[in-house]
Amino acid sequence: MPRYHFPEPPARLITPPARGITRRTVMTGLGAATLAAAMPRSGRTDTLAADPWPGSATDTLTSREVATGYNNFFEFGTSKSDPAEHAHHLNPTPWQIEVSGHAHDPGVIGMEDILSGFDLEERIYRLRCVEGWSKVIPWIGFPLKQLLARFDPTSDAQYVEFETLHDPVQMPNQTGDDIDWPYREGLRMDEAMHPLTLLAVGMYGEVMPNQNGAPIRLVVPWKYGFKSIKSIVRIRLVSERPVSSWEALAPREYGFYANVNPEVRHPRWHQATERRLHDGGRIATEKFNGYGEQVAHLYEGMDLFENF
């Protein structure tokens, strides 16, 4: 059903002439812009340069409006519009990630070193939420394995555990008990080292919006979205399989692997189809979210119904 759009009045009918742009406002504006350029960046709407990546998905992109206005980020509330509404409390600058555990060279890396130390790529990935909706997003980032290599993992590093920032002032819903904060996620080492596993620092040509996990988040395109942990502050290289937040909350419903799989249903709903936002209608869900060629070998011989 096509939506009727009411005619939009031109700007000149809304803006009184006194508020219009004159030479004076342009000059004042230029002054302010020079001043702003001299100050440290707030990082809110900065553009990010990145090289295109040959493996990008060719699906129609989800609009930036939907990608940034409809998502789950329980740290800001449980409804889909809460992240966009409340994420302004988050201050992603300065930011650092602490890498610890089984590494020869554990330590801390600041966001500025991350941005200057890795070649950024623009990768268009499909993102499938466990709830049954999906998006196609142009992320900007670099493979997680490049960051891990900096810290030189030992052979005892079998799994990687991630943690989101825990600060109820910046993340207001952390005062609630929806989740045992901070949010935790984990990957097996071979999943973490897979070339598709991305650390994203931006999307749609700009730095990561707060509501999508500023300033740095994980993107694992063949797994359900909740595996792609946001606003990461800690990475631990461990020998035991970590327990991720949703797995701890409802082990029957959310597994550690959480690979997209149309054959393995969630106890409360099936996973055979997905709503492609907005508005690609409903489509059939593909195994490993269509990345099977690249990742299926990771799970050879594993019972995917058992290890869901």
């Binding site: 939506r3 009727y4 009411f6 609009s63 409006e65 206005g69 936002l277 907005h278 508005d279």
Partner: peptide, 12 residues
């Protein structure tokens, strides 16, 4: 609300 775009980014 639907026709004036007041139902958010996923109105359906």
């Amino acid at each position: 609300q639907y026709h004036t775009g007041a139902l958010g980014v996923v109105p359906d």
